[in-house]
């Protein structure tokens, strides 16, 4: 993270938190959504809590500032002037060892030299001596960035195109559908690779590439649903009464698409995070992600005796998030199913 970039990140987090608070208010006000949220909590409290934990870690890791911390003799003075997040500050400033060490060990893995911080690396250290627990926690931010930020980029765009195509039909739909067809006919991973190769490798490019590939799925669902909604009797009645298109879309079509958006978002989330892991294997992922940790592990497993803690930490973190999101996603889909929505009304 660049020295000024952290200020931007802090601002973004503050904004996101404000947005979440606003969203919470909106949900609380609407009886339908509040009932759904309560039902969701009733069904899958554990999975929701797990996701919340990940979210909190990611948020904490995004708030950073410069300063504080002490450096021991011969320590890295430069490090003192790098911005460090709340998570970073959980660890001492000069925590790195020289290379591998096993969890809670007192000596280096190769050579047996004593460590600088014996017994304090809960999950050991990696090839560069970094504390594995620290790297794992840092990876949380990236995973949620990939899954969440990308979707946030994609949803408004997909809504715009999908609703326009579904509502106005004809030419607009022809064009939109053609673009969607082209994107849909390239296998996702190939498209991701092509985009990143063309745009260059970096976290922003990866997010954009993932956005492009996941946009189509969203858009297709929105378009299909808008087609259906447009034909509904009350929409036709409103149109006959002379209600403007924009108003119709805002009041009748969009609210009825929201449940689909939520479901699709949650279901796409895991796919995105898993895709990033594969991109990291190919070397075009985001630095510091769990995928990258797993990529390093291939080499580590081949050694004898094997080095397993890097892989274990990243796998556990990845698995935990994906599993929790999958469970939550299933529950969200059940809760927001139009049939059950109607019953509860």
């Amino acid at each position: 993270m660049s020295v000024e970039g952290h200020v931007l990140a802090n601002a973004v987090i503050a904004l996101l938190l404000a947005a979440c608070a606003g969203l919470a208010v909106v949900i609380h006000r609407s009886e339908l959504w509040r009932a759904a949220a309560v039902e969701l909590w009733r069904r899958r409290p554990i999975a929701l809590l797990v996701v919340a934990v990940y979210l909190v870690i990611a948020a904490l890791d995004s708030i950073s500032w410069v300063g504080g911390g002490e450096v021991g003799e011969g320590g890295d003075v430069l490090a003192m002037h790098q911005p460090r997040s709340l998570i970073d500050r959980l660890f001492p400033l000069d925590f790195d060892e020289k290379s591998y060490s096993a969890p809670l060990a007192s000596v280096e893995f190769y050579g047996g030299d004593p460590l600088d911080h014996p017994g304090r690396h809960l999950l050991g250290t990696d090839i560069l001596g970094r504390d594995v627990l620290h790297v794992m926690l840092d990876g949380t931010r990236i995973a949620l960035l990939v899954g969440g930020f990308t979707s946030l980029l994609v949803i408004p765009l997909a809504l715009l195109v999908g609703v326009s195509a579904g509502y106005f039909g004809k030419r607009i739909d022809d064009v939109a559908f053609f673009v969607m067809s082209v994107l849909m006919s390239i296998p996702d991973l190939l498209l991701l690779i092509a985009l990143i190769m063309a745009m260059g490798r970096g976290p922003l490019q990866v997010c954009i590439a993932m956005g492009v590939t996941s946009w189509v799925g969203f858009c297709r669902i929105v378009r299909g649903e808008t087609f259906k909604l447009r034909e509904l009797d009350y929409v036709e009645a409103a149109r006959a009464l002379g209600v403007s298109d924009l108003k119709l879309i805002w009041r009748h079509i969009l609210p009825n698409l929201m449940h689909l958006v939520v479901i699709t978002f949650v279901l796409t989330f895991s796919g995105l995070v898993l895709s990033e892991a594969i991109l990291s294997y190919l070397g075009i992922g985001i630095d510091g992600s769990w995928g990258q940790m797993i990529d390093q592990a291939r080499d580590e497993l081949a050694r004898d005796p094997i080095i397993w803690w890097n892989l274990a930490a990243a796998s556990a973190a990845l698995f935990g998030l994906i599993l929790a999101v999958n469970f939550v996603g299933d529950a969200v889909r059940d809760v927001l199913d139009p049939r059950t929505l109607r019953e509860r009304q």
Binding site: L274, I278, Y281, I294, L318, F319, L323, N326, D330
Partner: peptide, 18 residues
């Protein structure tokens, strides 16, 4: 099913090889 779905292909491959 949900458990097996949540494991990345990478891990299956690494695990399988190992």
């Amino acid at each position: 099913c949900v458990l097996t779905m949540s494991i990345s292909t990478l891990l299956y491959i690494i695990g399988g090889q190992f």
